[in-house]
């Protein structure tokens, strides 16, 4: 399988704290990677390095086979020019824990915004795509309202539609259900699952083990910036092959 995104010895530090500790990771096209782990383990930070919201301290990121996002001065990575970064980011969709919908735009405008501003599409074209995406997440009837009137689950589905409208090559989900009431988690996971069924490449950071098991091709357990374990859901969750630290973590969750 063709590798879409590759991290090579990626390090991210916050002061003296190493959040991401020399991580190597290959994500192939269509793969669903789920990253789990305790709070402060660096999983969100790792995810955010993938679309350059966090600037790495060393290492390389390759997208579709080419090193990108950074230029190297004396071997140290320095963020590339804005133009290149924006082009890269527009190909990688991201969904945030706090939704981060634009509150001053209607649902439809939220989904159109990136297409018009970044991709330079006409409004008519963007509206058509936006309505398709809202249809996909089951919210075409809420197109004209402002986000304030939506429930958390609806907001997150709009956020997914907003990212999808850019026709991204892969999607990043940063704890997409952590800010939701338990009864709203299902609708968001259903949406993500249908994306997975369409063959979208995805990296998902979550605490929901059930969902990880169900949707993942690869599950990664991360702690203090390192990968403790990585494998298929079968390896990851079966009692014989399970890493003792993961068992301990999962026992705490219950």
């Amino acid at each position: 399988m063709e590798t879409i995104l590759e991290l090579k010895k990626v390090v991210k530090k916050f002061g003296s704290l190493t959040a991401v500790n020399s991580i190597d990771l290959k994500i192939t096209r269509g793969e669903k990677v789920v990253i789990v782990g305790p709070s402060g383990s660096g999983k969100s930070t790792l995810l955010r390095t993938m679309n350059f919201l966090e600037t790495i301290d060393s290492g390389e990121i390759h997208f579709e086979g080419n090193p990108c996002g950074y230029i190297y001065k004396d071997g140290n990575p320095v963020l590339d020019c804005q133009k290149n970064l924006c082009a890269l980011r527009s190909e990688i969709g991201m969904v945030f824990q706090q939704f981060n919908l634009f509150p001053h735009m209607t649902v439809l405008q939220n989904v159109m915004e990136g297409q018009v501003t970044v991709l330079g599409k006409s409004k008519e074209e963007a509206r058509e795509v936006a309505l398709q995406m809202l249809e996909k997440v089951g919210l075409s009837d809420r197109a004209t309202v402002y986000p304030v009137t939506l429930s958390g689950g609806q907001k997150q589905r709009v956020a997914i539609a907003r990212a999808l409208a850019m026709k991204p090559k892969m999607m990043l989900f940063d704890e997409p259900t952590s800010a939701l009431d338990p009864e709203l988690v299902g609708e968001v996971f259903d949406t993500i699952r249908s994306l997975a069924d369409d063959g979208m490449t995805m990296v998902i950071v979550t605490h929901n083990m059930g969902f990880a098991r169900e949707v993942a091709d690869t599950v990664i357990f991360m702690e203090t910036g390192d990968f403790i374990a990585k494998g298929t859901p079968g390896e990851f969750f079966s009692a014989e092959t399970q890493h003792p630290r993961i068992k301990e973590f999962m026992d705490k969750l219950l």
Binding site: K83, L88, F102, V118
Partner: peptide, 16 residues
Amino acid sequence: IDDGQTEAAKALGMTY
């Protein structure tokens, strides 16, 4: 304005 707004705009590929 919440930093999340800047991040969401950036993630869509918007310039500063």
